[in-house]
Simulated assay, not measured.
Amino acid sequence: MTDYVDGYCERIGPGLWGEPLNSLSNFTFLVAAILVWRLANGGRVGRVLAALIGLVFVASTAFHLLATRWAAVADSVAILGFVLVYAVLFARTFWSRRHAWVAAPVFLALTLVTALLGGGLYLGALIGLAVFAAALAFARDAYWTHFAVAGAVFALSLSLRALDRDVCDYVPAGTHFLWHLLNGLVLYLVSRTIVLKNRP
């Protein structure tokens, strides 16, 4: 688990500053966490989401600083944790509180299926945002636009993540840091929506 991981265009070798842009761009998650915490104004749902975004910040920063396998696992687990909790909160907020617990295993199954089909761990999240937007649009809930915008930003973010290793010859820094910047925005947008919807 302590094996060295060289998975990004920017990584120039072992050491804490082997990925300066990838490391520093993680502060977008910290900013998002702070903004969601302040927006929550003491609300439990908002604070939970802010704490999970903060965990993403810590895990992702550790991974891009240390570049070890255990840190990579921590990074993926932190993101998956946010996604699964968010799926439950979405179902609880917009659909049925009684059956909201079903959302997590359903979303986990979707993630596993898309990963096995070669879509990686994040395609399921993109599909989920599209489903959320479509379901709310069908129900004529004005919040559908929030998820449509978040889905569009995430689609761009996912594309930039996939391009990282392909552009090394032209862009030495790669594009992974843009994935961080845009994902911080996505996490803020979807969290803000849940916080606003849960306000009295």
Rank of each mutant, 00 (worst) to 15 (best):
N22W: 12
S23E: 07
S23G: 11
S25C: 07
S25N: 05
F27L: 15
T28P: 02
F29I: 12
F29T: 08
F29E: 08
F29W: 13
L30R: 00
V31I: 14
V31S: 07
V31G: 05
A32W: 13
A33N: 09
V36I: 15
V36G: 03
V36N: 11
W37P: 02
W37M: 12
R38A: 10
A40W: 00
G42K: 08
G43H: 09
V45Y: 02
G46W: 08
G46F: 03
R47L: 14
R47I: 05
A50E: 03
A50F: 04
A51H: 06
A51I: 12
A51S: 15
L52N: 04
G54I: 14
V56K: 03
V56I: 15
F57Q: 05
V58N: 11
V58F: 15
A59C: 13
A59M: 02
S60G: 07
A62C: 04
F63L: 04
F63Q: 02
L65R: 04
L66S: 09
R69T: 15
R69H: 14
A72N: 11
A72G: 14
V73A: 03
A74L: 13
D75V: 01
D75G: 04
S76H: 04
I79A: 01
I79D: 03
I79T: 03
L80Y: 01
L80A: 12
L80N: 00
G81T: 01
G81F: 01
F82G: 02
V83E: 14
L84E: 03
A87N: 00
L89W: 02
A91N: 08
A91P: 01
A91C: 12
R92H: 09
R97P: 11
R97F: 02
H99L: 13
A100G: 00
A104Q: 13
P105A: 06
V106H: 01
V106M: 12
F107A: 03
F107D: 00
L108H: 05
L108E: 05
L108W: 05
A109M: 04
A109Q: 04
L110W: 05
T111E: 05
L112F: 01
L112C: 00
T114G: 03
A115P: 00
L117D: 08
L117H: 02
L117G: 13
G118Q: 14
G118T: 14
G119W: 02
G120F: 13
Y122T: 05
Y122L: 09
G124F: 13
I127K: 07
I127N: 08
G128V: 06
L129E: 02
L129D: 01
V131D: 07
F132Q: 01
A133N: 00
A134I: 15
A135P: 01
A135T: 07
L136T: 09
L136K: 07
A137T: 06
F138S: 07
A139K: 12
D141G: 11
W144L: 07
T145L: 15
T145K: 14
H146D: 06
A148W: 11
A148S: 11
A148Q: 08
A150T: 13
G151A: 10
A152P: 10
V153L: 08
V153E: 06
F154P: 03
F154Q: 06
A155L: 12
L156E: 02
